[in-house]
Design a protein around this nucleic acid. Structure first.
Lengths: 207, 207
DNA sequence: TGTACATCAGTGAACGCGCGTTCACTGATGTAC
DNA sequence: TGTACATCAGTGAACGCGCGTTCACTGATGTAC
């Protein structure tokens, strides 16, 4: 994510190679994609020889998982920052969450597969599943508050959150790979999120 | 997609190796995924030596593109079959289109990346871009008819189609990698499509 | 304060594997005469 | 109908590259006495 300068340690021992490798890997994945990422490049970028990473990570997979966790931490942070800026239960807060999500996805195109693709499967049992869930519950809470405010009692906030999540996830995924360009030249994803969320919430109020 | 028996040709020359390789590649991708797919395996499965494919495809990329095209043809076929079964302009037809889409996505998990991931970018200029668009316009027409029927004149059917597509795309993508299990144990994607589409259309009627 | 020793992070050469692609070839097919 | 020849699909060995991972080593650090 953010680059906290290699800080070329003068000594034989690296200060915190573990962390340095994660940062290097994240940068490389952003630059060249998940497929183009090689273990040896991460080592080189961290200023270390090819074998060194194996003192800190069992194998490539383990390093990728660490990067994945960092990515989810960053997403969670942004989601939390967003929700704190809006009045609880407002439609605006729900829209903003969607926009934050899509913004994150399109800002880090190369992380999409790592976070939501096949790799996602493996993390399900691991410890940071909670981290992944955090953003979802933030959304579910926002939707729940909105329902309460509107006097909608018969809907399950988690069910609604799944649908809104899917909407954002779909817009993000399609925008990422330029599938929308053909049908909506100069599509504005923020507006897309805003209007579609509005329509959806409108539909809930109706019934 | 479907397996039309290798038909082991008795002669030195293969009957239609071009087609046989596409089928073999498609099967292998379905079995082992895009990453695990090797050119030599496709050759072997087609009953041919390692160099033979290069008489028919410039390189691995070209073969993958052919598989991608076949996949889009299959999707188009299913979409067309679905739309023909429903009354034009009915909400049911729109829901069924979404369900067909998601069914296709989850039935061929390994094609998702090939069709909608990075590979998608490369096809944009190629000849079969039309094929990709076909399903979209089927949806846009269905939505347009629905609007007309409801007397909704101020909405752009293509804009609405993009949103419904994104909804289905998101549900498909999340379901594919089991991201929904955690929040909706035993989630029924068909029902998810149905209810979310209903809510969305309801929202449109409202305003 | 100084010496001996255990620990362990980092080295860098090397191994091994998978796999995309090439190339000189072989054999089947079909056409010209 | 038969022969010579061009064409080209398929062979299979080989090359080369990238890259994940290992391993015997080296040197820095800190602790025990």
């Amino acid at each position: 994510m953010n680059n906290s300068a290699p800080a070329k340690c003068s000594s034989y021992h690296h200060g915190d190679l573990h962390q340095a490798l994660i940062i290097a890997a994240a940068e490389l994945i952003e630059e060249r994609g998940l497929t183009g990422f090689a273990m040896i490049d991460a080592a080189r970028r961290a200023g270390v020889s090819s074998g060194a990473p194996y003192r800190h990570f069992k194998d490539k997979e383990a390093l990728l998982e660490a990067v994945c966790q960092v990515a989810f931490m960053a997403l969670t942070e942004q989601i939390n920052a967003t929700i704190s800026k809006f009045e609880p239960g407002s439609a605006a807060s729900i829209i903003a969450l969607g926009q934050t999500y899509v913004h994150f996805v399109t800002s880090h195109p190369q992380f999409y597969d790592l976070m939501w693709g096949e790799h996602g499967l493996r993390d399900l049992e691991s410890g940071h599943a909670d981290l992944r869930a955090s953003s979802f519950y933030t959304l579910a809470n926002a939707v729940g508050s909105w329902c309460q405010r509107k006097g909608i009692e018969d809907k399950d906030p988690e069910d609604l959150a799944v649908k809104l999540w899917a909407l954002g996830h779909g817009i993000g995924g399609l925008a990422l790979y330029n599938h929308l360009d053909k049908f909506m030249p100069a599509a504005d994803v923020n507006q897309l999120i805003e209007t579609s969320t509005h329509t959806f919430l409108e539909g809930l109020s109706r019934n």
